[in-house]
Computed example of a mutant assay.
Amino acid sequence: MPKGKKNKPKKKRKKKRLIVWILLILIGLTAFGYMKGLMSTKFDKNNKQADVGHFSGEKSGDGSTNILLLGSDSRGEDQGRSDSIMIAHYDNKTKQPKLVSIMRDTFVTIPTDSGPENNKINAAYSYGGPELVRKTIKDNFGIPIQYYAIVNFESFPKIVDTLAPSGLKIDAEKDLEVEGTVIKKGPQKMSGEEALQYARFRKDAESDFGRVRRQQQVMSALLQQGLNPLNAWRFPEAVGKVQGYTQTDIPFGFYPKSGMSYLFSKHKPLEILTVPVEGTWSDGYYDHAGSVLEIDTQANGQAIKNFFNK
């Protein structure tokens, strides 16, 4: 038998061992980065999170994932009303991220323990945390939600600074000022605090409509810049920090599976929908709720389903 053929098994074994060692090193570095990011949040004395109770997540029938994203104005001390309500949707097959923003003044039926109550959708969080918001969305729009994530005003800037340490590139649509933070119109790199105040501003003629649009602008920038393949080496530590600064039931395994799936895909831009959709709402007022958006729930539920399935 020729000498070259005798050496092949040894070369194959060496190659396999090298691959195994490389994988072990990558796994070790990933675990180290994640724990480093997570532990840094544990030593942050300002990282206070309220107990939000049990969440009964429901999987989608088509294998995609729906995540309830809540921006809380409680600042970690108590359970106030949700400042923003979004549904993040991701399909591992199409690699398409989508985001639905639900206007917080949307008038819906909330299934409280004492019976159905008609009120603004953001009251559901105050009454029963993310679980009641999940039930409210399912009952009104027919959309199942598997996981939740809550970010309060104290944590959001830290998450932005983690995902975009050199600043978040935003083309500010106007001059504005919120709580002493001044932002000028035009392209710029925003710090986490500036991005928060930009997304919160609503003291103009557009009120909540403009605020939701700016929230979507910030979320799109975070996805595009924070999950850039060039930043893949920072991803484990960023995931640890985001996990630590967020109240969530998203399992750790979801991040590498979906995050890497998106990182190394064609990197599709975030698609966005605002609810209520055009032509399905009108202004209303009730003594117990104040100014509200009265909506056609069936039309909006169908709009969300069409958006997710297109």
Rank of each mutant, 00 (worst) to 15 (best):
D51Y: 12
V277A: 12
T162M: 01
V212N: 11
G226P: 06
E294V: 14
T109Q: 12
K257F: 07
L132C: 05
R13A: 11
T280K: 13
K8A: 14
K138V: 02
S220N: 06
Q146D: 00
Q79N: 09
L168S: 10
M260C: 10
G28M: 08
Y127L: 14
T112L: 04
L222G: 02
L176H: 01
A199Q: 06
D105F: 09
K14M: 14
K241N: 07
R104H: 05
D283H: 09
G80A: 15
V108N: 03
S291Q: 13
M35K: 09
Q96M: 13
V20Q: 07
W233S: 03
V218E: 09
Q217K: 14
I25W: 08
K257S: 13
R81Y: 05
R75L: 10
N228P: 03
A31S: 11
E173K: 15
A123Y: 11
R214W: 09
K12N: 09
E179K: 13
L293K: 08
G284L: 03
L23Y: 01
K203T: 07
P130A: 11
N231Q: 13
P165I: 04
K59P: 04
Q215I: 07
S258W: 01
Q302D: 08
I143T: 11
L293Q: 09
R213W: 00
P97Y: 01
T162D: 02
A172Y: 03
G226R: 11
V182Y: 09
V20F: 13
E117K: 15
P97M: 04
K10D: 01
K6D: 09
D287A: 14
M39L: 14
N300Y: 08
F254I: 10
K174P: 00
L68H: 09
H288K: 15
G76Y: 02
Q247T: 15
G253A: 10
P229E: 03
R17Q: 13
L132Q: 04
K8D: 02
V212Y: 00
L26G: 11
S56N: 15
Y286H: 12
S72W: 06
K11C: 12
N92H: 10
G33F: 03
V178A: 02
L68P: 08
P2C: 00
Y127N: 02
K36N: 14
K16N: 10
I304H: 05
S126F: 13
T109S: 14
Q298L: 10
D91H: 06
I250P: 01
T30K: 05
G186E: 00
H89Q: 04
K42A: 14
I102H: 06
R17T: 12
P116F: 05
L230R: 14
A205G: 00
E154S: 14
G115E: 00
I110P: 03
N92Y: 07
K310T: 10
M219K: 00
K266H: 01
E206V: 10
D44W: 01
G128Y: 04
D204F: 05
D44M: 04
D44N: 10
Q298P: 00
R81G: 08
L222A: 04
T181A: 07
K48T: 15
M35Y: 12
P229Y: 03
K10Q: 07
D73T: 12
K135P: 00
I25T: 14
T136D: 09
